[in-house]
Simulated assay, not measured.
Amino acid sequence: MRKHIISLITLALAFGFLMAEGPDFETLKELLNKAKGGDVEAQFQMAGYYAEGIGVEEDITEAMRWMREAAKGGHTEAQYIMGTSYSHDIEEAVQWFTKAGQSGHLEAQKYLGTYYAGSGNDADKAFQWFLMAAQQLDIESAYEVGNKYFYGLGTEEDHAVAFEYYSLAAAKDYVPALVAVGECYLDGEGVKQDANKAFKFFTKAAASNNASALYNLGYCYHTGQGTKTNFIRANAMYQLAVHFADDAQKAAFQKYVDDTAAELSIVHREEADKIRDEWLGR
């Protein structure tokens, strides 16, 4: 119950339905009568007033009651807030998020996409919810839909469609999508192979210190794809990839550091280290 209360109050403030000053008595009386009559917007406002004690005595039980009434009546924001209030009860949370998501609530749709892609273990539902969110031009969801098409998760594998969704997110400079578009160009997956374009996308993404982008940039220098072969810069980029990588990536990237270092003289290794240090601002 404590988690319910904290969540509700936090969201009441976040969504801004509380007034800086409480309503006058007549306004509050009229609002309460509307709420009792089933007006979901009035119920939603009353929940906020009770949560913060604005115009009425603070009463979390009443706040929860009115929030639930608004949610049951179809108030989309109230349904979403009810979902967030049940972090201790995923099944209940999913039911409320589903109601909100079906009414077009973007954050609810994203939550459901993430839930079903993970512990909910339903690739089909994950795809559908991310697709709904992507149709609202959410860039993170567009990227997720791209992944679903690329790997055939919850839908048929289609690299061309995956590239389209990746491109939508990349156009808004979403870094994981920039990397994905670069990889599509590098490998000719879903689009005509173009190493020069791949290199440009990796360069742009690497500016955000994305480990995968730095690795791919190193790979381009290492193999001479999209740029001239340069083992010094390749080694430097690989080192940076290791620096910014999570634990799951470090070992794989370190192998490329070691492989390229073996091809360099001591002087050239020092040059690579200097490039690395300049990037890191050392």
Results as ranks from 00 to 15, higher is better:
Y151G: 08
A245T: 06
L8E: 00
H4R: 05
A171H: 09
A162C: 05
D89W: 06
V175T: 14
N147F: 13
L168Q: 10
L280R: 08
E57D: 13
G73L: 04
L178V: 12
E91L: 06
F17I: 08
A162G: 03
G120D: 00
N33I: 09
L32Y: 15
D122F: 02
V40D: 01
A272S: 05
D24G: 11
G113Q: 01
H105W: 03
N235Q: 01
Q109W: 05
L153R: 01
K200A: 09
W279T: 05
G218K: 08
G224K: 07
A134C: 11
V242K: 02
F202Q: 04
E164R: 14
L280Q: 04
H159M: 10
T84S: 12
K110Q: 14
G118A: 15
H222E: 08
L31W: 10
G101R: 01
Q128P: 07
Q193F: 06
R276Y: 15
S7L: 06
L106I: 12
E183A: 09
L137W: 13
E62M: 08
G38H: 03
E52N: 12
I275Y: 10
L11Y: 14
A248R: 08
S265Y: 14
Y165T: 00
L112T: 02
N147W: 09
D246Y: 10
A248N: 12
N196L: 10
Y80A: 04
E92P: 05
E92N: 07
N230A: 12
E278G: 12
A262K: 10
K192H: 12
I90W: 14
A177E: 01
Y115S: 06
A262E: 08
K29M: 14
G281P: 09
Y185M: 08
F231A: 15
L217R: 00
G113P: 03
